[in-house]
Design a protein around this nucleic acid. Structure first.
Lengths: 358, 358
DNA sequence: ATTAGCACTCTTTCTCTTTGAGTGCTAACA
DNA sequence: TGTTAGCACTCAAAGAGAAAGAGTGCTAAT
């Protein structure tokens, strides 16, 4: 059976009706649409065909139709019109991303929170391990007795830091010297190339202060690996409570249990693998069985072309794909813009000129 | 009417039964307890008295009794026995607090998460603004083009940092010079004493590099105020889904709405004011009407006597006060211990000797 | 002072019925 | 031949009793 234009229009109308109402859609309500001047009986015939094609389903014999995963897929891939944001919405979103310059993690968290607020859906944010980041500069700074701070900056301008609590007190000049040594040996390597063996090489390259150096080097190594670790979080999870899909506490609990587990989240995102473009996973397409009643829209953001992280929206299968996709692409683009401007290489900064609104 | 020993025993039994079962407690189930060798009819008479005294209530005529807020208060203040943790529990808790040395905020978040996991209840953590913290050292370190890091350590050993994204590039020596100037002028002040006017004094005290200095000083001021800001968070909020008190999504939503609002949380904690000791707020004693069906147990933690923050457990009125209070006091004590050892002044570090397990 | 006994109350649970939305099919129509 | 009106049918959801069960308060006996 062919999916002719009329069937496409009917399917689109049903999906959109269901997205709005969360109620199975009957033939009568579709027949009322002026753009389809057809009787309910005709719609029923068409609906029967669409059901046979696997695009619609009935919860029970005497109910209206609900889109199947295939139905949503068809809608997302070829029926849905791209949502054009209004000027007011764009302004609102722009405000949400016009944040003060600050740490990468904080920016991403702020953006996720803003986006979650705007969409009314939970937002997943991920900052992957920056294994591929090439170390530009490593610094150890004394900040207090027994305490130093390790600061690592990479070529794409991302800066991470961590406190080192030492067993011995060190002098400022020792910290400077250490910084110099670390830099000489580690700059230019990727973070994943820094391992305990090249740290030990550094140690043995130096004669004096052997005892202190050993433990400091170990701490630095530990700190580097920790800095490098992947971060993943969910913001606005409680937004799902608004949906009739989650009117039972058991369903809420099930979703919360899955999404509060970092491993699950990580698996979800890795398998979605949206490294180049926005991806939409619907229902059973989700890598986790527990999420088969949900959908995920996920997109990458970058700093100067390098992949920095991912931002995703999770919600019921019945989410407003058109709006969510447009919004997400806007947000990741804005985020990439901010990151490229703030964290990007010198060249890119210069290209941008000095038009800086801070 | 006097609250004699028998009434006290009965009240205690009812409260504990209700804490376990979440069901109104009938006279029969109490009369079965061997320590109270009484018939159900006698218990009924006593229950009637306890109800008249405002310590118990009936959901409806033919239901068992439920403790009122007054009943819980009586239980917490003078009936409940202090829960003694088992060696296994202590070990489990100790493991949860034997964290690596790291940033204050991360330690507190980790402890809150661990405690939430152990109690199965949401845990509120707060790091108040460190207005009273006396600045020991301020440092500005160049980390990348257009980027510096501000690091502030205070007398009790707490270290905070923030990136500064500059409009101009600065040299390392400029950063060092700036650090020196900031230190000379600001060390010894409390953080709340650092305001825009003494920053401007610093600026005018220096002649050269005027233009750059102005914007850097402004950024530093901004960063200091931000560093100083209060932090507040809730961990394990979804734990409440386990309780029959939250079997309806509306109730869950109401609680989530309140607890996801930082201002509410802040109000809650400020009014609870547990600056010296553990406090228990029950039902209507809560400063927020929306929380009148919940209770809060909250306690401070310190580093070398100075108040650092608060840790609280929130849950249904029917929470196991005895266990929660013991657990919370254990955790805040552990936390204070870690903070005093890791972040405390030099003297305290020395007192502790070098028995350091890192 | 305590307790057994009993009538009474009120929620919870179950079953049965009704209602209503929606379908599929048939036959008539353009 | 595609479209539509009409109608019998299905099934979930809502409502109305009825029965069960837990628990009380009161009275009278111990």
């Amino acid at each position: 059976m062919a999916l002719d234009d009329r069937k496409r229009l009917i399917l689109q109308a049903i999906v959109e009706d269901y997205i709005n109402s969360a109620e199975p859609v009957g033939s009568r309500s579709i027949s009322k649409k002026p753009e389809l001047n057809l009787s309910a009986a005709t719609i029923r015939n068409e609906m029967g065909d669409l059901e046979e094609m696997g695009l619609l389903a009935q919860p029970h014999t005497s109910a209206g139709r609900v889109p199947t995963t295939g139905g949503y897929r068809m809608y997302v891939d070829s029926l849905m019109e791209r949502y054009e944001m209004t000027a007011a919405e764009i302004e609102k979103m722009r405000q949400a991303t016009s944040m003060k310059k600050q740490e990468l993690e904080k920016i991403v968290r702020d953006v996720a929170a803003a986006f979650s607020g705007i969409t009314g859906l939970p937002v997943i944010g991920m900052l992957p391990a920056s294994e591929a980041g090439i170390v530009k500069n490593i610094k150890v700074v004394k900040v207090d007795d027994y305490t130093a701070m390790l600061i690592v900056s990479d070529k794409s301008g991302i800066i991470k830091n961590r406190l080192l609590k030492l067993n011995q007190d060190i002098s400022e000049s020792f910290a400077d010297e250490l910084s110099k040594i670390l830099n000489q040996n580690l700059a230019g390597l990727t973070i994943s190339e820094i391992n305990i063996s090249n740290m030990m090489e550094i140690r043995s390259a130096i004669g004096h202060n052997f005892e202190i150096l050993t433990s400091v080097i170990e701490l630095v190594h530990e700190a580097v690996s920790e800095i490098d670790s992947k971060q993943i979080f969910v913001d606005g999870l409680s937004n799902i409570l608004r949906f009739p899909e989650y009117s039972s506490v058991d369903k809420v609990k099930e979703l919360f249990d899955v999404l509060e587990n970092k491993e699950n989240l990580s698996k979800l995102i890795v398998e979605a693998n949206p490294t180049n473009c926005t991806k939409v996973l619907i229902g059973e397409e989700m890598p986790l069985d527990e999420l088969k009643n949900n959908s995920l829209v996920i997109a990458p953001y970058r700093a100067s072309e390098r992949l920095i992280g991912l931002l995703g929206v999770i919600g019921p299968k019945r989410m407003d794909y058109s709006r969510i996709i447009s919004g997400l692409e806007f947000f990741t683009a804005q985020l990439s813009g901010v990151l490229t401007k703030d964290f990007g290489t010198r060249q890119i900064l210069l290209e941008m000129g000095k038009g800086d609104e801070t």
